[in-house]
């Protein structure tokens, strides 16, 4: 069961602004989704182990520099650039 309080908490963490109507609706919808997932709990898993076993060998990368991107290209998508930096608005203190 997802309460409206939980919705507001998660929304705040995700920096989302919700109207009271949206908060109410999402609480109901998310509860339904969780309820659906809960049905998995009814499966009989007594015969299977839940250990984490990778099915495939891990894919590694060797420690070699294999590329060099053009900085200007990479910066071209940013709304604001300054002297090779990404420019972002004033950062508020955590907790503000």
């Amino acid at each position: 069961m997802i309460t409206e309080e939980t919705v507001l908490h998660v929304a705040k963490l995700a920096r989302l602004e919700l109207t009271p109507e949206e908060t109410h609706r999402y609480a109901q919808e998310l509860s339904k989704i969780l309820h659906l997932v809960d049905e998995l709990a009814d499966l009989d898993l007594s015969s299977s182990t839940l250990e984490l076993v990778p099915e495939h060998p891990t894919l590694f990368r060797e420690d070699k520099q294999t590329w060099n991107f053009d900085r200007q290209d990479l910066l071209s998508n940013t709304p604001e650039e300054e002297n090779g930096f990404f420019r972002v608005p004033k950062i508020l203190d955590e907790g503000n």
């Binding site: 070699k64 520099q65 294999t66 590329w67 991107f69 002297n83 090779g84």
Partner: peptide, 27 residues
């Protein structure tokens, strides 16, 4: 002290120009 980053092939070299050692992965 690796030559490259943890999840991409960008150099970890210190003291280069800002955002020189970046790629779509670490961005």
């Amino acid at each position: 002290k690796t030559q490259t980053k943890l999840f991409c092939a960008c150099s970890t070299q210190f003291g280069v120009e800002q955002n020189q050692n970046t790629c779509p992965i670490c961005l």
